[in-house]
Write a protein that binds this DNA or RNA. Structure first.
Length: 757
DNA sequence: AACAACGGGCTTTTT
DNA sequence: GCCCGTTGTT
């Protein structure tokens, strides 16, 4: 029982108390993941069948990491049988299983945010509403929060308060948009993200046999990040755990930072009312940070009224004081912080990966990118467009979706004229009108033009027919051809690959490469199944592709780089040196959060999260003026700086008193502002899958390398390998043997190989 | 139907 | 300042 001895008393209790409801309040850095994994391992070691365990996490990454750690303790074959994943992925699978009960096809499409928004936009247009009043984003938010509170379109319409509220805000017909949106999704055989939870609730509510089955299947329910669950998730968990009441929720109310998307902090605050028989375990010892950081964070969070009392403490050393750095401009802030990183790196022999720059908004990354680049410090940026949201990827996926589910209207609209095949706006609008007149799908209209006369001319009908025939030809292969072969067929025969190949602009090259990357991802997936003597079909790949995110493909190459990310994205991570930048009023706390106490408290929790990411040293930084929306805006230091007990702080940077030095600086500043800054507007478009340009590492990209057979090289995904063959002169293609992945053919232009010897 | 010019908008983000 | 979507032009 060696895993128990590595736990402190509070952790051990939380692991050992397996029966009945329990809540683990886990302070930042207190070993929460460790408790969760050991708890699950402990259950299984004590005879609980992994099939009877349900463990729900906030992200795919968290689920994967936990699964790996459990596998290390109890073995992979057992760990495999635990139902573990995000709410969305676990219940999407369950829904596919019972989709017929809800009138959905089992291969229903999952609409992502873009799909929902585009559908809402179309509906607003169709109802002839003004899209300045009925802003798709706003409507989507309204519908989403309705669904998260289990309010269907019918219930929405019948709710006089809600309808009155919409009328007051000048949107009396919002309920119609919701009604039509619900109907269209259903007709398209599509569920949006919120539906995955909403329909699970419906399934469990209306089908007692199903409820009974899962209540008995999931005898043990564990929920991570409970403070970030919404009502819909809360209710699913409550229903499932109702019979055995072996529910364990883990969270930290102080780290609840997602209320803007429906997370309900009350869920954790009310746990004790829901389960009177509960036990509470508080993990209060922090193993991550210095005393300075822990105490500073405590002094901040205690300003919040709404919280569960706890005392986070640590045995670690005092550590350095928290530096507060003042700069005159955002550019200067970038330089100062980058220089500081450079300095610490040399002084402490730290690795690039030991540093993180955290900010409130993605737009702040620019000045840091620029200055890090000048110092040749490699960095990686999280955020921005994820791989699966890129246009070219979504286009190809839309073909896959349409192949699996021709009712999927968003997919159809996306690719009916991409690549260009002469089916323009007029044609598409005509099809939409006819489809809506006959209460049928666009697909039905174009597959059976004799039944649904569109009045389109013969040439157009021929083109439509060719399109329908192509999709049908893919569809018949769905269950015959493996995922990779079919995917490649579609990519080629749809013309997507060629269209991108013909586009020789840097963006086009990058898109082509992204498509190749998606295809090799599918290849990996297919071969993974082959290794288990199974055939993977495209629909298997599509099952949760909509639920995948970028964090799933962290590459080897990215490990030793300075990290730039929003504070939100940093939740759950830790770094020796953390720089929290843009500590200014109206930026952090955000201007939009100043209206209510609860919003301000959420900002404060966000600051708490940021501070507690740091292990050795935290640094705060603010600028007295910065570019915002094209203007120079002057700013005040954030109130959060004042909320830290002063004895933990150490001020640095341009002094506040007037001095000749300052005016010099201001002159410099004005010159900087006046001169044209290098523009990185193309950066996101240009950079392929790996997110940011490599910094100054002497390793160059493979295309200008003098590669020879026999060289040892490093690949960002496959790791170390040896060159066994080269093609072209100078070489354009290499065959490389990777111990981890076998022989791979790589295009040097894209592969970003690094020579090791 | 393709491309340039214009204007509005704009936290955070996973699923 | 920059992105995105819409409008206007040929």
């Amino acid at each position: 029982m060696d895993y128990l001895s590595s736990l402190n008393p509070a952790q051990r209790e939380a692991v050992l108390h397996t029966e009945g409801p329990s809540m683990v309040i886990a302070g930042a850095g207190s070993g929460k993941t460790r408790v969760l994994t050991y708890r699950i391992a402990h259950l299984i070691k004590n005879g609980v069948d992994p099939f009877n365990i349900l463990a729900l996490t906030f992200t795919n990454k968290a689920a994967r990491e936990m699964k790996e750690r459990i596998a290390e303790i109890i073995g992979a074959s057992e760990a495999k049988n635990i139902s573990m994943g995000t709410f969305h992925s676990v219940f999407a699978r369950i829904l596919r299983h019972h989709s017929d009960k809800l009138g959905y096809p089992s291969n229903f499409t999952i609409y992502d945010t873009q799909d929902s928004r585009s559908l809402i936009k179309a509906i607003v247009k169709e109802l002839r509403l003004d899209d300045k009043t009925y802003k798709p984003n706003l409507i989507a938010g309204r519908i989403s929060s309705a669904k998260n509170n289990l309010i269907s379109a019918a219930a929405y319409e019948a709710n006089t308060d809600i309808v009155a509220e919409d009328r007051m805000s000048g949107k009396p017909r919002l309920f119609e948009v919701y009604r039509l949106y619900e109907k269209r999704c259903f007709m398209a055989g599509a569920m949006d993200f919120d539906d995955l939870l909403f329909k699970t609730n419906v399934l469990l509510r209306d089908h007692p046999d199903v409820l009974h089955y899962y209540q008995h299947k999931f005898r043990y329910v564990l929920v991570d990040e409970y403070q970030d669950t919404n009502y819909s998730q809360y209710l699913i968990v409550k229903k499932l755990a109702d019979v055995f009441q072996n529910i364990c929720v883990v969270g930290d109310d102080a780290q609840s930072i997602y209320s803007f998307r429906g997370a309900n902090i009350e869920n954790i605050l009310n746990f004790k009312n829901d389960y009177p028989e509960h036990r509470i375990f508080k993990l209060e010892q922090n193993y991550r940070s210095t005393k300075t950081i822990v105490n500073a964070a405590n002094s901040v969070i205690e300003k919040n009224k709404n919280q569960i009392k706890k005392t986070v403490w640590t045995d670690n050393t005092d550590g350095k004081k928290i530096k507060v750095i003042r700069s005159l401009t955002d550019n200067e802030e970038g330089k100062t912080i980058s220089n500081l990183i450079y300095e610490i790196k040399n002084l402490e022999q730290a690795a690039n990966g030991d540093f993180a720059i955290l900010y409130r908004t993605n737009a702040q990354s620019r000045s840091f990118e620029e200055s890090l680049r000048k110092l040749n410090l490699p960095y990686k940026i999280y955020g921005g467009l994820s791989f699966y949201q890129r246009k070219e990827i979504k286009d190809l996926l839309a073909y896959f979706r349409l192949t699996a589910n021709p009712s999927d209207e968003e997919a159809l609209k996306r690719v009916i004229n991409y690549p260009k095949r002469g089916l323009g706006k007029t044609t598409i609008e005509r099809i939409i009108v006819v489809a809506s007149q006959h209460e049928t799908s666009m697909w039905n209209v174009i597959s059976d033009p004799s039944k649904y006369p569109t009045g389109l001319n013969g040439g157009t009908l021929n083109k439509l027919n060719a399109f329908v025939t192509a999709i049908n030809s893919y569809a018949v292969q769905l269950e015959k051809t493996d995922a990779y072969v079919l995917a490649e067929t579609i990519a080629k025969s749809s013309g997507i690959l060629k269209a991108l190949y013909d586009d020789k602009s840097p963006e086009g090259v990058s898109r082509h490469e992204n498509i190749q990357a998606l295809l090799s991802g599918i290849k990996e997936f297919t071969e993974g199944a082959k290794a288990d003597n199974e055939t993977a079909f495209l629909s298997d790949f599509m099952v949760d592709v909509a639920l995948l995110t970028d964090a799933d493909q962290e590459s080897e190459e990215d490990k030793d780089k300075v990290t730039l990310m929003t504070i939100h994205a940093s939740k759950g991570l830790e770094f020796p040196y953390v720089f929290i930048v843009g500590m200014e009023e109206n930026l952090f706390p955000s201007q939009l959060a100043l209206n209510s106490r609860s919003e301000l408290e959420e900002e404060r929790r966000l600051f708490y999260v940021a501070l507690t990411r740091a292990e050795k040293q935290a640094t705060l930084s603010y600028a007295t003026s910065r570019f915002r929306w094209g203007n120079i805006v002057t700013s005040e230091p954030s109130r959060f700086i004042d909320e830290i007990d002063a004895d933990h702080l150490e001020f640095q940077g341009a002094s506040k008193s007037k001095s000749p030095g300052k005016s010099m600086n201001q002159l410099n500043m004005e010159r900087k502002i006046g001169s044209k800054q290098p523009l990185y507007s193309n950066r996101r478009k240009l950079t392929p899958v790996s997110k940011a340009p490599t910094g100054g590492k002497k390793g160059t990209t493979a295309q200008d390398l003098d590669l020879k057979v026999g060289y040892n090289v490093m690949h960002e995904r496959f790791g170390k390998g040896k060159v066994v063959g080269l093609e072209g002169n100078p070489p354009t293609k290499a065959t490389v043997f990777f111990p981890k992945a076998g022989n791979k053919q790589l295009l040097l232009k894209f592969a970003r190989l690094e020579i090791l010897d």
